[in-house]
Simulated scan of single mutants.
Amino acid sequence: MNKSMKDLVEDARSRVDVISPAEAHSAMKQGDIILDVREPAELDSDGAVDGAVHIPRGLVEAQADADTGKANEVLANKRGGNGRVHVLCASGARAALAADSLRQMGYVTTVIEGGLAAWKEADLPFRI
Results as ranks from 00 to 15, higher is better:
residue 93 A to D: 13
residue 55 I to V: 12
residue 93 A to V: 05
residue 79 R to D: 05
residue 69 G to P: 00
residue 35 L to W: 02
residue 114 G to Y: 06
residue 58 G to Y: 07
residue 25 H to D: 14
residue 127 R to W: 06
residue 63 Q to G: 07
residue 117 A to V: 02
residue 4 S to L: 10
residue 54 H to L: 12
residue 72 N to K: 04
residue 120 K to V: 11
residue 92 G to M: 03
residue 88 L to R: 06
residue 55 I to H: 03
residue 78 K to Y: 04
residue 61 E to T: 09
residue 32 D to S: 05
residue 29 K to V: 02
residue 112 I to C: 13
residue 56 P to D: 05
residue 8 L to P: 03
residue 119 W to H: 04
residue 102 L to A: 08
residue 10 E to F: 07
residue 114 G to R: 00
residue 4 S to W: 05
residue 100 D to G: 03
residue 8 L to T: 01
residue 1 M to K: 08
residue 65 D to Y: 01
residue 27 A to V: 04
residue 89 C to K: 03
residue 122 A to N: 07
residue 99 A to F: 04
residue 37 V to N: 09
residue 57 R to C: 01
residue 81 G to Y: 14
residue 107 Y to M: 10
residue 35 L to H: 06
residue 12 A to G: 03
residue 99 A to L: 06
residue 113 E to M: 03
residue 54 H to K: 10
residue 69 G to W: 03
residue 128 I to W: 04
residue 110 T to W: 08
residue 11 D to W: 00
residue 111 V to D: 12
residue 23 E to G: 04
residue 107 Y to F: 14
residue 88 L to F: 06
residue 73 E to H: 05
residue 103 R to A: 15
residue 73 E to D: 11
residue 122 A to K: 01
residue 77 N to H: 13
residue 59 L to I: 00
residue 88 L to P: 05
residue 27 A to E: 08
residue 101 S to N: 13
residue 2 N to P: 11
residue 32 D to T: 04
residue 37 V to I: 06
residue 76 A to E: 15
residue 4 S to H: 05
residue 41 A to Q: 14
residue 87 V to S: 03
residue 9 V to C: 06
residue 38 R to T: 11
residue 9 V to Y: 09
residue 6 K to S: 07
residue 74 V to Y: 01
residue 62 A to I: 08
residue 120 K to G: 00
residue 91 S to V: 14
residue 80 G to P: 07
residue 30 Q to S: 15
residue 82 N to I: 01
residue 57 R to I: 09
residue 116 L to C: 00
residue 34 I to Y: 08
residue 104 Q to F: 12
residue 114 G to E: 10
residue 98 A to I: 11
residue 125 P to Q: 01
residue 32 D to E: 08
residue 46 D to L: 15
residue 53 V to F: 08
residue 51 G to N: 00
residue 97 L to A: 06
residue 103 R to T: 15
residue 85 V to H: 07
residue 53 V to R: 07
residue 91 S to C: 04
residue 124 L to D: 01
residue 46 D to S: 14
residue 124 L to I: 11
residue 97 L to E: 10
residue 50 D to G: 00
residue 66 A to G: 13
residue 42 E to P: 03
residue 47 G to P: 13
residue 41 A to M: 11
residue 32 D to I: 12
residue 102 L to G: 09
residue 28 M to G: 03
residue 46 D to V: 10
residue 33 I to L: 09
residue 50 D to Q: 13
residue 78 K to H: 15
residue 88 L to I: 08
residue 4 S to R: 01
residue 97 L to H: 04
